[in-house]
Design a protein around this nucleic acid. Structure first.
Lengths: 234, 234
DNA sequence: ATGTGATTTGTACTATCGTACAAAAGATCA
DNA sequence: TGATCTTTTGTACGATAGTACAAATCACAT
């Protein structure tokens, strides 16, 4: 019974708990877990360091709660979009719909938090890179089901591609997705302003298009169209 | 005059400086910059914490030296492979050779350090995710030239694709590359043992194949009412 | 062997970390 | 209003961080 919807909020800070969560999410996502102190988070949220301990007990507990907050809605939304995608008749269109069902919720809101989708996905990317233990456990047990569902769906629309190859390519998809959220400025810089790496709609379309094509690549063990050309070894 | 090739090495530790660099590289790459203390590094290298200060002045200085050590050889190797790739006549084969020239040095040795390529690339991935300032500066001024060279080369072999799209897709390539080195176990897990995410040769082939296909995808702003059913080049 | 410069060690200083906890303040309802 | 529960504040503690620095040790030319 921790949650109680107070009709009359605190005068100073309406829902400090949420403010701390939001601040932590932002700071963790941009600086990593260890680079951010509890005091940093409290200050960004306009709270007292003790408040963080009160609401979340430990720093790990705070991270855990951020994940709990987002995982459910995001996976739900992905499931809905995946179900809809699987009803698409045309195989080519279906594949694109499936990829889109995977990508879109990662970039856009997790249904309750405004613009929270991209921030949370970036957080996951950073925690994954840092090898964060708390995150690793939650991710494996929360997202693997979803990942398998997507892999299976993709496999059904590309029956001639070995499942192994599809796993690799969906892994590349997640890496590309993560990286797009981690350093969007790199796209702007390398394209000399022609592309805006920070524009989610742009990123989604580019990522979906590129990924669909990668999934449609011939299988690896298939007799290659032609021989690899340069550098077999050194 | 810091470097002096001693014919008779120290009895205890042959080249402690190298041991510290190697230990730091490994620890930073797997745990992130802030999660690793100077004392952790010293202990892993069998050195005294003071030695780290002596050789590299600060923790940032240590990271800087790691980058200095690898950037040159890796970019040199990439340049060589790129030059060779650009001499390939067939456009399709050339594209694959170019992608391979980009990917291979990231996975394999930086010519002087054994197996250091993958470790250093993983380090870059982690520093990028953490938004590390020291790394950000070096990366931008060291790798952007190389990136542009590759983008230009790819653009030449795919003249009908807007440069903007090629930037996006090469960005996805780097993200996929990074992520493959950060969590190779995920591939093994999701493929239920069918694929080994830790096998560099495997990762390279899968990544090259998928990436070449993604580059060959039709341009985004193209009408694209109905796209080619299976990779137009086959 | 001895002096000299390069390296390694040991230790200490200050800052900041995560967290605990008691007291203050605010909210809710009889 | 006063009692009670929730939340916020302020402060403090032990651990550990990065780094500085003097003493000890080593390698080697003389």
């Amino acid at each position: 019974m921790v949650r109680k919807p107070t009709s009359k909020e605190s005068a100073r800070k309406p829902n400090m708990r949420e403010a701390i969560l939001a601040a932590a999410e932002e700071l963790f996502a941009t600086n990593g877990f260890n680079a951010v102190s509890v005091r940093d988070i409290a200050q960004a949220a306009g709270a007292n360091p003790g408040s963080v301990t009160y609401h979340f007990k430990t720093k790990d507990g705070l991270l855990l709660e951020i994940y709990r907050r987002h995982c459910g809605p995001m996976n739900l939304r992905r499931s809905e979009l995946l179900a809809a995608a699987k009803r698409v008749r045309d195989l080519q269109d279906r594949l694109e719909a499936i990829v889109r069902a995977y990508v879109v919720p990662a970039f856009t809101s997790g249904s309750d938090l405004a613009g929270g989708g991209a921030r949370f996905t970036r957080l996951r990317a950073v925690m994954s890179a840092e090898g964060n233990e708390v995150a690793r456990k939650i991710i494996a047990q929360t997202f693997d089901d979803t990942s398998h569902a997507f892999i299976d769906a993709i496999h059904e629309s590309l029956p001639h591609i070995p499942r192994k190859d599809i796993v690799w390519r969906s892994h590349f998809l997640l890496g590309a997705l993560y990286y797009s959220l981690v350093t969007p400025d790199r796209v702007s810089r390398l394209s000399r302003g022609e592309a805006d790496g920070s524009d989610p709609a742009n990123a989604i379309e580019q990522l979906v298009q590129a990924t669909v094509a990668s999934f449609q690549a011939p299988a690896l063990d298939q007799p290659a169209r032609r021989r690899p050309v340069v550098s077999s070894k050194t």
